[in-house]
Simulated scan of single mutants.
Amino acid sequence: MEKTWRWFGPNDKITLEMLRQIGVEGIVTALHHIPNGEVWSLEEVEKMKNFIEKAGLRWSVVESLPVSESIKYAGPDRDQLIENYKESLRNLGKAGVKTICYNFMPVLDWARTDLEYPNPDGTSNLYFNRAEFAYFDIHILKREGAEKDYTDEILARVDELKKTMDKEGEKRLVENIIVKTQGFVDGIDADQLRENMKYFLEAIMPVCDEYDINMCVHPDDPPLQILGLPRIVTCDADIKAFLDAVPNPHNGLTFCAGSLSAGAHNDVPELAKKYADRTHFVHARICNVMPNGDFKESTHLDPRLIDVVRTFEEKRPGVPMRVDHAPLMLGDEKMGYNAGYSFHGRMLALGMVSGIMATINAEKGC
């Protein structure tokens, strides 16, 4: 696999020169300064591409070219927004940037309740506490009917949590979960969201065919129904459904082992084997799910992740891969990095995954 790194542009505290020194081969980034829904001009695309190439690297993956909320809920400006999206794809294709990661999660992107959950070794990780999330939903967001979405066990944990929760604790939850109010229309269900995703993909596939662009949707993170919002990329059946709905090989998957493993219902190594041929991008990380449903990031040496890496090394050599959601360590917590995107933690993770890849290839005689 190609060793890539998510980089947040020229203002990122982690420089391209630093990334070359630690063995990164390709860059995963986006034109973050362009508002969602506007066209990425060829000039702006080539400016970013040239900047990366001058550092001796290449722009391997766009993560992400955002899908506007109105496309997801079929708003009145959907078709114009799709035309803008197609024009951005054309400009990326002309510049030779041909792997596009995106998501179709309404309103809320990935969610965690703790961004610095302490580990015994002094590092920290992202963590998702189901009771805290339910508390946020019921008592802070005060979503009507929220209680119906949770089990009696979780509701009992919420009641216990309510006895000790203070204003600072509530503030922490709000800051960590970061609910985005982007005008999503209430009442849309999973079936309608699937139809809207199909409509979008069918509209852009001719451009993908013309420029050999691979679209790869990111699984929902976490792969659960949250805040009453429909989630449609959470499990084997969901993945099969969107791939079958638009069978064009340019319609593919970002295989995020971390997102998928956050659901105990997913056998991640088996999913990797099943969908390797439709995977265009790999996120190498993994989660441990607790008996109560909470989950946290696990080590990149987790045997399940080793199995995933083996699958893609054998079945999809050259596919872009990046590590993410690594521990905060060695002062990372003081640097103001985006949550989950530390330098030292990701560097350690990249070293681990690079070692796994080298071992697998040595076994193959490569």
Rank of each mutant, 00 (worst) to 15 (best):
K54Q: 14
M290G: 00
F255M: 08
E2F: 03
R194Y: 13
G318W: 05
I27S: 07
P66V: 05
P219D: 09
Y337Q: 12
L42N: 04
A264V: 14
P35R: 09
V246D: 10
F128H: 15
T113D: 07
G228I: 06
E313C: 13
I138W: 01
Y102G: 06
I178C: 08
M352G: 11
Q192L: 13
G37Q: 03
F281S: 07
I356D: 02
K162Y: 04
I14L: 05
M321I: 13
M347A: 15
C256D: 15
V62Q: 01
S354Q: 14
Y117F: 15
R130M: 07
I204W: 00
I286E: 04
H33T: 05
N103G: 11
H283Y: 09
A156L: 06
I239V: 15
I138G: 11
L81Q: 10
D267L: 08
Y102S: 11
H33N: 07
H265G: 06
L16Y: 03
I138M: 15
G75Q: 04
T123E: 02
V323T: 14
R285L: 13
D186E: 06
R231I: 05
C208L: 07
K198N: 04
M165A: 10
F104W: 05
R58I: 01
N338L: 13
L65I: 08
T311L: 05
S60A: 14
N338S: 13
A257N: 12
N103H: 14
G263D: 13
G252C: 06
S298C: 11
I140V: 14
L227Q: 09
A262T: 10
M48I: 03
G9H: 09
P320N: 08
R143T: 13
F295T: 13
L173H: 10
V45P: 10
S124N: 12
S60N: 06
A257Y: 07
D307S: 14
L301K: 03
E69S: 06
G26S: 03
M48W: 10
P206I: 07
P222C: 11
P303S: 00
D220E: 02
F255V: 13
D191W: 01
R20W: 07
R143V: 07
P247N: 09
K13L: 12
V158L: 06
L328M: 12
E202W: 08
R143P: 08
F242Y: 15
D191N: 11
E170T: 05
G351I: 00
P249G: 02
D244G: 01
Q225H: 08
T15W: 07
